[in-house]
Design a protein around this nucleic acid. Sequence first.
DNA 1: CGATGACTTGAGTATGGTCAACACAAGTGG
DNA 2: CCACTTGTGTTGACCATACTCAAGTCATCG
Lengths: 238, 238
Amino acid sequence: MTVTAISISSDLHPALRRLASMVDLDDSDRMALRNAAARERTIKARGEVLQEGKPIRERLLVLSGWAARVRILQDGRRQIINFTLPGDLIGNCSHANPLASSTIAALTPLTVCALPDAATSPALCEAYAMSAATEEAYLLAQIVRLGRMTASERVEDLLLELMERLELTGLARNGHYAMPITQETMADALGLTSVHVNRMLQRSKQAKRLRWARGTMEIAAVAEMRRDVGRMPVRVSQ
Amino acid sequence: MTVTAISISSDLHPALRRLASMVDLDDSDRMALRNAAARERTIKARGEVLQEGKPIRERLLVLSGWAARVRILQDGRRQIINFTLPGDLIGNCSHANPLASSTIAALTPLTVCALPDAATSPALCEAYAMSAATEEAYLLAQIVRLGRMTASERVEDLLLELMERLELTGLARNGHYAMPITQETMADALGLTSVHVNRMLQRSKQAKRLRWARGTMEIAAVAEMRRDVGRMPVRVSQ
DNA sequence: CGATGACTTGAGTATGGTCAACACAAGTGG
DNA sequence: CCACTTGTGTTGACCATACTCAAGTCATCG
């Protein structure tokens, strides 16, 4: 079967590489992932991928675009729990009949695909578990940011985190990446107002630590910034 | 075997009830849990149950006492990620060779026990997964608290959360529970200073919403407080 | 070209932080 | 038994970080 042979020899979709790098996958696993990625689905910007409290039917992988887990308070205050970037999973629950713990909204046009069931392969099951652990580690980082960092530290720490995560799928290089979200959205993730986020960005720009324009971000002094905000690498297993 | 018969008919340790209520356990599962709980281990207040970055060797259950996941910044700022109460798990990872994502420190004298391996029973595996999902739901709540709530809302929301969680093991009743932590510790969880936590507690006391003294807490107006802070019930599966 | 959404900047304000002093209870050692 | 220490809670005065409100710029797009 020519198709099979071609599929096995061809590379995985960039968004699948992060997952694939976590474990040793055999050919049938890689095949299953490739077939999954081939059936992509698109969601419009501002569309909802998951709704809080509703059942989760499948495990999705983000192939392209940015999304966010969002919670809205009664009076309209909005908190972004975390960002979901290409290579990240959505609805990655390991228990039966899970309910979405938060709404997931597309921040840009999004393409996703359904992933193979965990029961089909121990390696995939392990990869899903590692992905969940990684996501949890980023939730902890978010808690520390919101609880104990100043506004400018929050902004810089988030920009570093986004860079690190985008590097895994080749979407960031040399401290440079596409930044498709508004300052208002950043503010909702950082527990700040957009006005203040803007001022903090300006400050970092004037300190020559940051450059940005029209949907792109450049961290000019990565090492310095990492040191200043005390950012540690995220590792979830030996 | 008399011992077996007695064990099966006797009740589970209160701290095990939360776990047991999540799934249907058969007699051998219940037996395994009872045996686990019988081998308890104690940790002194201020002792560390887990250290950030070190391998996790086993899955623990807290039988009594309070602990906290803690992260310390370079300059000494401390953030408590979440509280670990009786019935909660420690080191509940589903992937291989996990590393601790944060230090867990005992806030009071603590008793814990090692839990049976997930591979021994699908029901236990499911219970562990549900416990992990529940813990994640509380991390989301913590993020919203820190990101988008005012100081007084943070304090009241945390006190409601602690009440709800303690109710599951019978440690809270009628809005009344033992509160073994200092205002300084609460401040480190809430991203505030202890001075300000004190002022917020005083305010709630004067509004007749709260009463507390010498290590006990009483929420005088649960329904009112829940409404005001917009607190929703935590559900992770259908 | 007007409409829109995002970004920018300034002026004034408020929430929560800092610093300091003190109260009070529970040890602890002389 | 009493000084002394230590940890926790309490209160006041002052301050700074971040918010609010408002106006204005700029690019994009129908």
